[in-house]
Amino acid sequence: MILLSLKNLVKSFGGLAAVAGVSLEVNRGDVVGLIGPNGAGKTTVFNLVTGAIPPDDGNIFFDGRNLAGLAPHQIVRLGLARTYQTIRLFPKISVLENVLCGCHCRMRSGVLSSFFRLPAQRREERSALDRAMEELEFVGIADKRRLAAGGLAYGDQRRLEIARALASEPKLLVLDEPAGGMNEQETMELRGLIAAILARDITVMLIEHDIGFVMRVSNRLAVMENGALIAEGPPGEIRRDPRVIEAYLGVDD
């Protein structure tokens, strides 16, 4: 069953075609790795999918809905959550409060129910706290809930970003270089975490430069070069694809 489908996406910055007609499908239960050299347009694809920037042309369908014209917060509500390549936590506020941000879109209390502390508002707060703690425990940093997010070790900040995204109850989780800056131990733990996310019936799409990691964790790979998709398929096939080898290693003339 197709969860996400990109149809002929185009995005240019000035004269540069960052994404030049990319079409891609992601099935429910997939872990799709998006790889390619620097500047190939991977992060632009992610920014288009999450609504951070609008496409010049083409369409994105998620869970049967066209995402055209939707603001990022509306897309999150539909069940598409992300993490950022350069970590974008709220550094000065606590770890727990960071995760509560993910809960926001699944809550409904407004100004008046907060002014008067209505029972429904208190119940909702309670279950949001519960949810946030569950996600912190899921990624393994529940004991650090009181600390300022900016004070966490790098690997923990990456986990916290994942916890915050998971708290929004996504169907699809989009990870932009989750292993970036991680040591070998942390990368190994991240593999376990992604497997656990998958076990929760959440589909994963990730950009990653660590080829060994992305080969092991993904069941499908999509390779980009100069804004175009040059190959797509299971990791075993991609590894032998001459165009991919050429894009990564170059060829002798």
Binding site: T50, A52, A71, P72, H73, Q74, V76, R77, A81, R82, Y84, R88, L89, F90, P91, K92, I93, E97, L100, C101, G102, H104, C105, M107, S109, G110, V111, S114, F115, R117, Q121, E124, E125, A128, R164, A165, S168
Partner: peptide, 27 residues
Amino acid sequence: RLEDSRFGRALKYIREDATAAEGMGVD
């Protein structure tokens, strides 16, 4: 009370990083 609620937190996220707040589901 407002500060200690979903509404107040939303404002705090906006103050800290409006782009990230929007990207995490805050209108």
